[in-house]
Simulated scan of single mutants.
Amino acid sequence: MTTPMPDDRTRRIMLWVVAVGFFMQTLDSTIVNTALPSMARSLGESPLRMQSVVIAYSLTMAVIIPASGWLADRFGTRTIFQTAIALFVLGSLLCAYAGTLPFLVAARVVQGVGGAMLLPVGRLSVLRTFPRDQYLQALSFVAIPGMIGPLIGPTLGGWLTQALSWHWIFLINVPVGILGALATVRYMPNARQSGIGRFDVAGYVLLAIAMLALSFSLDGLAEMGFQHATVLMLLIASMAALTAYVLHAGKRRQPLFPLRLFRIHSFAWACSATCSRGSAMAPCRS
C-alpha cells in the first residue's frame, strides 16, 4: 500500500529516530559486559553464571529478526517500530529492577524481542520513504551509530557502574526510548505491503532452528564451555535446518525469506562480504 511521501524535514527526523534505535540495539549487546561482576555481586550469583544475561539477548534477537519483515508488512512499519521501542523500554525497566538472575534473563529476552525489530523495521521504513537516489546515503547514516554502539558499550557500561550503579546501564534507555516513541508517532509513515499472504510458520521454525544452532555453536566453545563434539553437532544441525529451509522455500510461493534475492548480484555480494567478516547474516525480506 502506498503512502504519501513525507517532506525533507520529516524524513531527516525519521532518519535520526531509526539511527538512535539502531544505536540502542547494538549498544545493549555489549554494555553489560563490564558490569557483569558488579551485577553478580548484587544478585548474589557466581560471575560465571552471568554470561546467560548476554546470551539471552543475542539469541532472542537471532530468533525474532526473521519474523520482523513480515510483521512490518502486515501491520505497518510505524506500528511495529513503536512496538519494538515499547518492548525495549519495558525490558530495560525490568532489567534495572531485577532482583534475581532468572528474572534478569527473562527481562533481557523481552528487551531482545524489541531490539530485534528496531533495525530491520527501521531500515524497511527508510527504504519505503526515501527516493531511490537517496537510499545509499540514508542507509549509511543509519548504520554509523550501529557501528559506534558496540565500541563504546563496554567503556560506558563500566563508567556507569562505577559512577552510579549497574542499574543505570538499562535505565538510560528509558528517556531515549520514550522520546523515540513520540517521534515515531509524529514522523514515521505507517507503510504496509499489500497481498503478503499468511505467515510462513514452517519456514520461520526452520530458520529459527538454524540461527539458534549456529549461535550456540559460535558461542559454545568460548563462553559456554561446550565440548568440540557438541559444537560440531550444533553446526551440523544448523546446516541441516538451513538445507531444509532451502527445500521448503523452493516449493512455497511466498516463503519468509525468498531465495530469489540471491539472484540480485549486489545482494549476493553483500551477504558474502558479511559472512567473510564473521558476522551473522540476519535474513531480510523484500
Results as ranks from 00 to 15, higher is better:
G112A: 13
G112H: 10
V113N: 07
A116Y: 08
A116I: 10
M117P: 11
M117C: 15
P120G: 12
P120M: 10
P120F: 09
P120Y: 07
V121C: 14
G122S: 11
R123M: 15
L124T: 10
S125F: 02
V126L: 06
R128M: 11
T129V: 03
F130M: 13
P131L: 01
D133A: 13
Q134N: 07
L136P: 10
Q137K: 12
Q137H: 09
A138F: 02
A138P: 08
S140A: 13
V142L: 04
A143D: 09
P145S: 05
G146P: 00
L151C: 10
I152E: 03
P154E: 01
T155N: 11
G158N: 08
G158L: 05
G158Y: 01
W159P: 03
L160P: 04
T161E: 10
T161Q: 08
L164N: 11
S165F: 01
S165V: 01
S165I: 00
W166Y: 13
H167L: 07
H167K: 09
W168V: 06
L171A: 10
I172A: 09
I172H: 11
V174F: 10
G177N: 13
L179Q: 11
L182F: 10
A183D: 09
T184R: 11
T184C: 14
V185L: 14
P189F: 05
R192C: 06
S194W: 02
G195D: 15
G195E: 14
R198G: 12
V201K: 10
V201R: 11
A202P: 10
A202Y: 08
A202L: 12
G203P: 01
Y204V: 05
V205D: 04
L206I: 00
L206C: 05
I209P: 03
M211V: 06
M211P: 08
L212G: 09
A213F: 00
A213K: 04
F216Y: 05
F216M: 08
S217D: 05
L218V: 13
D219F: 15
G220P: 05
L221S: 15
L221M: 12
L221R: 15
L221Y: 06
Q227C: 13
Q227S: 15
A229N: 14
T230F: 04
T230G: 14
L232R: 11
L234A: 08
L235G: 15
I236C: 04
A237D: 07
A237K: 03
S238V: 00
S238K: 01
M239C: 07
A240R: 00
A240W: 00
A241Q: 06
L242I: 04
A244K: 02
Y245F: 05
V246G: 10
H248T: 09
G250C: 02
K251T: 14
K251Y: 08
R252L: 07
R253P: 13
